[in-house]
Computed example of a mutant assay.
Amino acid sequence: MTEDPFVVHCGLLFTVAYEMLGSAADAEDVLQETWLRWAGVDRSQVHDPRAYLVRAVTRQALNRMRTLARRREDYVGEWLPEPLLTHPDVADDVELAESVSIAMLTVLETLEPVERAVFVLREVFDMPYDEVAGAVGKTSAAVRQVARRARDHVAARQPRVRVSRSEHKAVVDRFAAALHTGRIQDLMEIMAPDVVLVADGGGITAAAPAPVHGAELVATMLAATDRTAYRTTTVCLNGAPAIRIAADSGGATVSFLIENGRITRIYATSNPQKLTRLDEPADLTR
């Protein structure tokens, strides 16, 4: 018996939806809506199930993005993508790991919905322009223009140099060790002078209401935390080494952007509504 194409491509469909939405919960809702539509389709009329399903997920995700835009206008403090526990081998696919990183998802958040959809489908999943056009409801010529604009936008905001997984982990381990010592100088040595800390508590947990700039200020803030009240572990989040914090008062995740051996961005998520998918690795695939 042939396995249902939806089941076969479920990991791919979830990844597409997650990269477009930055939220696993919303991506799962989109998959559910797509499945309900797929269940009523005459399969004999579907010549390429994979392309059909990606197109359906994209359209559902675009609809969801309009709702999310209104919801995020009322969000308290900084909004960060929902972190996901991932298998270490996700990092083996460098382009996939980069595309699902918290840093990249944060950049994608600055694109318009159609620009984001086109960028994800074309640049990450290498879909032909005509298939992308069918998914977003535009002509191939228009999609080429959108893709060029989105590429330029992302290129201007993403790091110029890719960091190997081993180098990334080494810096994260050094950060964790410095965090435990609580010494400001140790923390500052790992961070770039112009480091930025972005914290997302969603108005539920205490978090900086705006980005914190500068190594000394960030280090001073981190050193002031009660180190006896939590424990840290190094995990793979969104395809890269990161830190998971467990505490009686609630948990958090800390992801990093690293350039030239130093941390340039710190993304700290403590909103409990975004920390529900950290026990089982997500199935992210291309």
Results as ranks from 00 to 15, higher is better:
D173L: 08
Y18N: 12
I243C: 01
A247F: 04
W79C: 04
V254Y: 01
D279H: 15
S140F: 03
V143W: 01
Q158F: 01
H153C: 03
P209C: 00
E280F: 04
M188R: 14
A206H: 12
L237F: 12
V16N: 11
A224F: 01
Q185W: 10
V132P: 01
D173S: 13
A61D: 07
W38K: 03
F119C: 12
V171Q: 06
A97C: 10
R157P: 12
R148F: 01
A219H: 07
T225N: 07
P193K: 13
M191T: 13
V16I: 15
S99C: 02
V57M: 08
V7P: 00
D92V: 05
V120H: 11
R55A: 06
D279T: 15
R165W: 09
D93R: 11
P241F: 10
V143S: 03
V198T: 14
A242C: 13
V146F: 01
I258R: 10
R71V: 09
Q45I: 00
G201L: 05
D4I: 01
A61L: 10
R174I: 02
A25S: 14
R122Q: 04
P81Y: 04
A24V: 13
I258H: 07
I243M: 07
E259C: 00
L222V: 11
A177E: 15
R157V: 02
C236E: 08
V172R: 08
P211N: 11
G201D: 01
L31R: 01
A27N: 04
I102H: 09
L121A: 04
L217M: 09
G203H: 10
W35P: 07
G11R: 07
V100Q: 13
I102A: 07
Q158V: 10
L275Y: 06
A240F: 12
T110H: 10
P81N: 12
V143I: 08
H9N: 13
E115R: 06
V100P: 05
E189Y: 11
S249L: 05
A133S: 06
E189L: 08
R183A: 10
V46T: 04
P241W: 07
I263K: 06
Q273V: 02
T2S: 07
A24Y: 15
A210W: 03
S164F: 11
P241N: 11
V196A: 02
P83R: 12
L105Y: 00
G201K: 00
H87E: 14
E3S: 02
L217Y: 11
Y75M: 13
N260M: 10
A223P: 01
V46H: 00
V107T: 09
G214A: 00
A17I: 09
E98V: 09
T139A: 07
L187C: 06
A147Q: 03
A97K: 05
S270A: 14
M65D: 11
R151W: 12
Q60Y: 04
K169I: 00
Q60N: 13
L105T: 07
A268K: 04
V124W: 06
T232Q: 11
P193Y: 05
T220C: 00
G134Y: 02
G40I: 10
T67Q: 15
T233R: 15
P88C: 05
P211I: 12
R72A: 14
E95N: 06
R66T: 10
P159L: 00
R71Y: 02
E123D: 07
